[in-house]
């Protein structure tokens, strides 16, 4: 190989590496700027007047996301397993279509639908309607993710279980679900974190804060507080504080998602 060719290759390599590194910097820079502003402004907001309301909103967010997840995650996982493991049936086909369609619906439309169906029908607001809207976001996403994860399980694994005398449902429950467990758990944490940070489906429920507390003192939510406070110049500190807590909550949930994705015995 001639030295000219080697020099050319080194130059091309350096340019390619430099371009890739520049892309990474361009990706990281806005995140770093946003995070710096978030931490400094958010800390100031928490220390200041926004502190107590942020704590209240944080409790509200955790309650909303907790109730929604407790209902929607088992529903979504069970539905996703059924959709894949019994895929020949009409119900499974309908379930796959519904999960796909619902997971594509914009969150604001889900909020509107819940408002029209529950709030308008019942005639009064409830903390639970907010949780219902979030559950409608979580369940189809979980069903979709679980079905995809189950589809990636090799047929040979199911065949091994059936050859051992397992029935179809036992194979699904004790083998397939075990294999997809880490992937589904990770998706559950991420989906719950996204739901916790979702503002759009809760916009129609904001009046709920004016109603008597029905379930808990945490009748506010962080995304709503960010939305409300950001639109009022005198309350910006509260918006920063709520945003910092929201990002921290999402970060903690992402940590659990990563932990859930690490199979037992692997480091």
């Amino acid at each position: 190989m001639t030295s000219a060719l080697i020099r050319r290759r080194r130059t091309v390599d350096a340019v390619a590496r430099g371009a890739a590194a520049a892309c990474v910097v361009l990706l990281l820079a806005p995140t770093a700027i946003a995070l710096t502003a978030l931490v400094t402004e958010g800390a100031r907001g928490i220390v200041g007047a926004g502190g107590w309301s942020v704590v209240r909103a944080c409790a509200g967010t955790l309650m909303l996301a907790g109730i929604a997840s407790a209902v929607a995650i088992p529903l979504g996982v069970g539905g996703g397993l059924y959709i894949n493991e019994y895929r020949g049936g009409t119900l499974a086909r309908a379930g796959r279509w519904a999960a796909g369609a619902l997971s594509e619906v914009p969150a604001v439309v889900i909020g509107l639908a819940v408002h029209a169906l529950l709030v308008a029908a019942v005639g009064r607001f409830s903390f639970l309607w907010g949780a219902a809207a979030l559950a409608l976001m979580i369940a189809p996403t979980m069903a979709h993710t679980t079905a995809d994860a189950a589809r990636s399980v090799p047929e040979s694994v199911r065949e091994a279980a059936i050859a051992l005398g397992a029935s179809r449902w036992r194979t699904t429950l004790f083998v397939v679900s075990r294999v997809v467990h880490a992937r589904v758990a990770r998706a559950a944490w991420i989906t719950a974190a996204r739901a916790a940070g979702a503002t759009a489906p809760l916009l129609f429920m904001t009046e709920a804060r004016d109603w008597p507390r029905q379930l808990t003192s945490g009748d506010d939510a962080l995304p709503l507080q960010v939305f409300d406070a950001a639109s009022r110049p005198d309350a910006r500190a509260g918006a920063w504080a709520a945003a910092l807590v929201l990002v921290t909550v999402a970060g903690v949930m992402s940590y659990f998602a990563r932990r859930a994705a690490t199979p037992r015995g692997h480091t």
Partner: peptide, 25 residues
């Protein structure tokens, strides 16, 4: 039945695999 390609259950330990048939039944 034993298959051509070994098909132990992933995400299970050695012990869990050995007794998997009993649990599944």
């Amino acid at each position: 039945m034993i298959f051509q390609r070994p098909n132990p259950f992933p995400a299970m330990t050695v012990r869990e695999n050995v007794v998997a048939g009993l649990r599944l039944s």
